[in-house]
Every structure is written in C-alpha cells, then in structure tokens.
Simulated scan of single mutants.
Amino acid sequence: MKFGCFQNPLLSGSDLSTVIGRPTGSSGFDDSGQPRYQTNRRTMNSSDRALLTAFREISNMADRINLPRTIVDRSNTLFKQVHDGKTLKGRSNDAIASACLYIACRQEGVPRTFKEICAVSKIPKKEIGRCFKLILKALETSVDIITTGDFMSRFCSNLSLPTAVQRAATHIAKKAVEFDLVPGRSPISVAAAAIYMATQASEEKRTQKEIGDVAGVADVTIKQSYKLIYPRAHDLFPENFKLATLIDKLPQQ
C-alpha cells in the first residue's frame, strides 16, 4: 500500500511516498498491539524542496486574494523556469515567488497591484518590482500593458459603488486618457482619481483615503491625478449621468 502526494510534473520526480508492509504474525505488532510499518521513503533533493516551498507560498498567497488555479499554475511554471535558470541568485525565493504571482496575474488578464501582492507576501514593493523586471528579462517574456479598465470594476465593487457610478468613473478615466490629461500617471492612480470624481458628483461619495485604501495608492497620488483632470471635468462625464452634485461644485483637489 502506498501513501503520499500526487506527482508534481514540475518536480524532478523524487518519490515521497511511504510503502506500508502488511503486518504478519506477532512480529507484525508492537507491545501495545499497534502494527509495525516498514517504510521506504526516499529523501527529497534540495532543489525539489525549494520548489515545493515556493509552490506552497504561491498557493497560499493566491488563496488570500481569491485567485484561480490557472494563476497558481502559471506562477509555479514561471518560478520553476527562474529556479532552473539560476538567473536571480541572491534574491529570496519569497520575493521571486511574489513577482511570479504578479506576472501571472498580468499575463492571465486579471492584474493585481503591487500593493495587493505585498499585502499577502510581506515582501517590500520595491523588491517585488526589482524581481519583476529581472524575471521578464531573464525569461524573455512580457506582460500586457495595464489600463484603468483592468482595475475599475474591482475597485468599485470593493467600495460598494452602484453600477451607474462605476460606469461614470470608467467613462471619466477613458476620456482623461484620450484627452492626454494624465501623461505619465499610472493607470491605477488615474482610475482612483476618476472614481473620486464620479463619487463626488453622485450620492455615493467616497473620500480619497477610502479609495486609496482599496486601490493601494496614497491620498496624495490620487490628489495629483485628480488635479490634472479636474479642469476638464465638464468634458469627462457621460451625458446620461445623474448628477447629485453639480460639476461646478466638485472639490477642486
């Protein structure tokens, strides 16, 4: 009889199973009447041990932010490629695993912010960012450019905003980019500023801090992007949006 984990195709094939022999006669039992087991357990090599540890960490991080198995599988494959290539020596496996999870989210079309990955990994944003760039270079891979739309639905949902406000915020962000009002600003900060503007014009007002906590950006970052789009506020709202606060009465910063 054999017990143990299923074979992971990303491992080298170490046999972690335990073979249990059938007890026979009196010698098959100890003094307390429990069966004696004969085990044949091979030692896992250090490479597979490091991989398994990283895979567990990736799975745990993904569980904390409700990411699907496809993300975990892609993250594991990325980590395995980096591990085998030995191109990120000196970097902690936890930091590499966190960066792989961030990349997998981007590649699978469900991007998460660096701050969201930091929150579940306890690795500083700067270190994840460094590993992110090194991995893309080492594996000669790429990620799709993120847009405001990649985050809008999730941010608005986490803020418990109605569909009408989400649509307005999406429209505001899209127009702000089209009018080139936010050059050099990150899509996350633009999305946050658009949400702030939309909520301030609605009955569902949210503060910059509330939005920043959900979006993972500082209040000052939202304020800076908002100041860039505010002068064109009249041109940013969708025509059918029901204003609870007139555009002229919106906060100026």
Rank of each mutant, 00 (worst) to 15 (best):
G4F: 04
Q7C: 06
L10D: 11
G13F: 03
S14N: 07
S17K: 08
G21L: 07
R22L: 00
P23Q: 01
P23F: 04
G25I: 01
Y37W: 00
T43S: 12
L51N: 13
R64C: 08
T70R: 14
I71E: 06
D73I: 15
R74K: 12
F79A: 07
K89Y: 12
R91N: 03
L101T: 01
Y102C: 05
Q107I: 02
E108D: 12
E116Y: 10
I117C: 05
C118R: 12
A119W: 01
K122C: 01
G129D: 12
G129P: 00
R130D: 15
C131M: 05
K133A: 15
E140H: 10
T141K: 03
F151P: 02
F151V: 02
L159Q: 09
A169Q: 09
A169I: 08
T170V: 10
K174P: 01
K174V: 04
L181R: 04
G184L: 07
P187V: 14
S202D: 13
E203F: 00
I211D: 01
G212K: 04
D213W: 07
A215S: 14
A215F: 09
A218E: 06
D219T: 11
V220W: 02
V220A: 14
R232Q: 15
L236I: 05
L236G: 01
E239M: 11
F241H: 11
I247G: 04
L250V: 03
